[in-house]
Computed example of a mutant assay.
Amino acid sequence: MPLALFSTPNTAPRLGKVIGETIIDLTQAAPQLPGSVIEFLAAGTSARQAYDAVTARSTGAQVLADVRLHAPVPNPEKFLAIGMNYADHGAEAEKLGLKEPEYQLWFNKQVSCITGPFDDVVSPRVSEKLDYEVELAVVIGQTCRNVPRAEARSVIGGYMVANDVSARDWQLRTGTMTLGKSFDTHGPIGPWLTLDHEVDDPQALTVRMLVNGVEKQCASTAAMIFDIYDQIAYLSQVMTLKPGDILATGTPSGVGIAKDPPDFLQVGDVMRAEVEGLGYIENRVVADQ
Score class of each variant (00 low, 15 high):
K95W: 11
G20Y: 08
D263W: 04
D131Q: 03
F6Q: 05
V207M: 13
P243C: 03
G157S: 03
H197Y: 15
L98I: 15
P31Q: 09
I257L: 13
E102M: 10
L26K: 12
P124R: 12
L179F: 14
Q266D: 13
Q266T: 10
A30I: 13
D169T: 06
P9Q: 07
Q110R: 13
G44Y: 03
I246T: 11
S182D: 02
V199M: 01
P202I: 00
Y280V: 08
T27G: 10
G180T: 13
Y234R: 08
Y103C: 04
P243L: 07
I257T: 06
Q217E: 11
A204F: 00
I281Q: 10
E102L: 14
T206G: 05
G44C: 04
G97Q: 07
W170V: 13
S127I: 07
T178K: 07
T115N: 15
V286A: 07
D131E: 00
Y132F: 15
G190K: 12
E21S: 14
I114P: 03
D201H: 01
N85V: 06
S253F: 11
V111E: 09
V37Y: 04
D263H: 07
V18N: 08
L69W: 11
M209K: 00
S46Y: 00
S220I: 09
A81W: 06
S166T: 15
S182R: 04
G213D: 03
A30C: 14
Q62C: 09
R168C: 10
T206R: 10
A4Y: 10
D169R: 05
M177W: 15
S7M: 12
V63F: 06
I114S: 00
L179P: 09
P202T: 01
K259D: 10
N146F: 10
D120V: 12
D245M: 10
G190A: 12
A30T: 14
F118N: 09
E276H: 09
F79E: 05
P188D: 05
N283T: 01
V63K: 13
L235V: 12
S253E: 11
T206M: 09
A43R: 01
S220R: 10
Y51K: 02
T174A: 04
Y132R: 05
N163M: 08
Q217L: 08
N75L: 07
P188W: 10
C113S: 15
E39I: 01
S58D: 03
P31F: 06
G83F: 01
Y229S: 11
P262M: 11
G244I: 09
D131W: 00
V63I: 12
I189R: 05
A12N: 09
H186P: 09
I38W: 04
K216V: 05
Q62S: 14
V147K: 02
G97W: 10
T55G: 07
R68P: 05
G83K: 04
K181L: 00
G256N: 11
Q104V: 08
M84E: 14
I225T: 13
P31K: 06
G157R: 04
L5F: 01
M1E: 10
V255H: 02
G116S: 12
E198H: 03
